[in-house]
Structure formats: C-alpha cells, structure tokens
Design a protein around this nucleic acid. Structure first.
Lengths: 147, 147
DNA sequence: TTTCTTTTGTTGACATATCAACTATTGATC
DNA sequence: GATCAATAGTTGATATGTCAACAAAAGAAA
C-alpha cells in the first residue's frame, strides 16, 4: 500500500495538536474573563495536587508529563499566590510533600464548576460511545509512541 | 443527569493534551537522534510553508494557530538556518511573501520520510474507520470550542 | 566508615506561547 | 489630499517546555 501525500491538516497528530491548542486557548480566555489570575497549566497542577497530595515533585512531573524544571518554577508561582506549599519530609531532606493550602483548596472548589462547564461544552453533541472510542484511540496512539 | 467527579486522567481534554505531549516528545527525540537540528515546531512551520507558499506571516499564524509574535521569532531562526526567506511584496511594504529556500526544500524533501514513519507508527493497529472517527470527533470538539 | 552512584530538586540557557505596546504602512473618511 | 482607523509585523515581558549542569542528600559497595 503506497503512502499518499497528505496535506498537513489531514494528519492525525496535527489535528490532535490543533484540538489541544483550541481547548487551551478557549480555557485560558475563560480564565482571564473570570479573572482567575492563573494559567491553565497552573490549574492542571493544582488539580493534580488536590487529587493526589501529598506527593513529591517527581511524582507531579510524572503525572503531568512535565519536566521537573517546569514543576519547580510553576510551584514557585503557585506558592507565591498562596495556593500550594512544599512540606519537608521527616527523615528525608531530598524531597518534599507538595500539598494545597487552605486557600488553594478553596480556590479549586470555587472554580471547579467553571472548568466542568468547559469540559462539558467540549464534548457537547458527542455520544457516550464516541467519547469512549476517542479515549481508547488516544490511548492506543500514546502506547504506539511509547507514552 | 448529575455531573460525576472525575479524576483528571479520565477527562477527554487531559488525554488529548497527554497524547499531544507524548507525540511531540517522541518526534523531538527522533529529530535529535537523527540530528536534524530543528525543533518539531520549526518542522511544522516549514511544512506549512512548503505546502502553501507564498503566504504572509499572518496567514502562517492562522494556519498554525500560533501568535504572530511566535511566527516572527521562529521564522528568524529558520531564516538563520537558511531554510526560509521573507520576500518583499511589490506594492505592499507591510507584509512579506514567506517561502522556502532551495536548502529549505531539500531539507523537507530529505526528512519527510522520517516524519511519515512517525505518523504511521502513531496510528499503528488502528483501523481506517477508527482513524476517521478520531478525526471527526476531534473536529467536533474544535467546533464546540469555537476553533 | 569511606567512597561511588543514584536520586531529587534547582538553576541557566534557549525555544515557544501569549499579551500588550509599538512602528510602519495601508485603507477609509472627511 | 489630510486625518483617522485598521492592519502586518516586531519587540518586551512573563510563563512554560526542554536539556544540561549542578548541589545536596540518600543509597550501595568497598
């Protein structure tokens, strides 16, 4: 079977990137409109910490597929805003337990509905089957690429 | 219908972002291993220019969903590598016709097979129906979010 | 225990994403 | 034609993504 020349718009990975961009841009505009004062990337970290705290920065990097350097810097910003804290671990001075502050928990609780609305809007008009199929296909692609 | 609490891993947009990251990281590792000397983002711009040249930077920003500022800087890098040129337009001193140089065309031609292999690997084991379904679903999500 | 290796996190450097401010030019209105 | 508004591109500032170099600490090996 020959490999057809394909316009870049028809390439699956390009469409995935495009969808990701559209979604992030939409979400950030909503965040800005509602004056949340954080970026989408920061929100995702907050949400992961909320779900899995306490966890180390290494675990946070793994969960979010980010570089440890990104985690360090984003946590610095979130700490400056008062939403997260690095707690020293007794008997281990090499890593920290990252967790939400009271203000951080309140912030997530307050704005989770907004984020949920965005999620629901993104899959509006899609059947449950379609959504499950999408998740399955995405996971297969990730596995193909060693993710 | 109530809105269930969902772990972030189960959120469609999170999986799309994750797939995008896995794909970019895989592609960049391959580029580095083969010493292409460019980033994945630069490759995508090159490919768009190859397909649509001559085009303005504004059009390039639209096609790639990037900010004009990103286009300026990435084009500067690609121009320094000798792969693209900004050609003044007769009778219009406000915009440029962006196009590939001879070296740029040769570069794309030389490395396109590598990129195609990556694309094929990414959809390995997926049926044609599955791929089409994925494209359709992604486009619906983009439309839902105004993209 | 002392030395060597690995792990965790930070920092520096560069590319990219984004917004805002700015310049130059073009188009529109008077 | 002169003035004003819109457009194309650039630059600055800040956040993020990534790699490499690094420091401190923990674990392994001698």
């Amino acid at each position: 079977m020959s490999t057809k020349e394909r316009q870049i718009e028809e390439v699956v990975l390009f469409q995935i990137e495009r969808t990701n961009k559209v979604a992030r841009q939409y979400a950030q505009r909503e965040f800005d409109r509602l004056a949340l004062g954080i970026t989408v990337e920061q929100w995702i970290l907050l949400k992961i910490v909320e779900e899995k705290a306490p966890l180390s920065q290494k675990e946070l990097a793994g969960s979010s597929l980010r570089d440890p350097a990104s985690i360090t810097r984003t946590l610095d910003l979130l700490a400056k805003k008062g939403y997260v804290k690095r707690k020293p671990i007794a008997g281990n001075r090499r890593q920290y337990d990252v967790h939400l502050t009271t203000a951080g928990k309140a912030f997530v609780k307050k704005h989770l509905p907004t984020v949920k609305e965005q999620r629901e809007l993104s899959v509006k008009g899609l059947s449950l089957t379609e959504i499950e199929q999408l998740q399955n296909t995405l996971k297969k692609i990730q596995e193909n690429l060693g993710g």
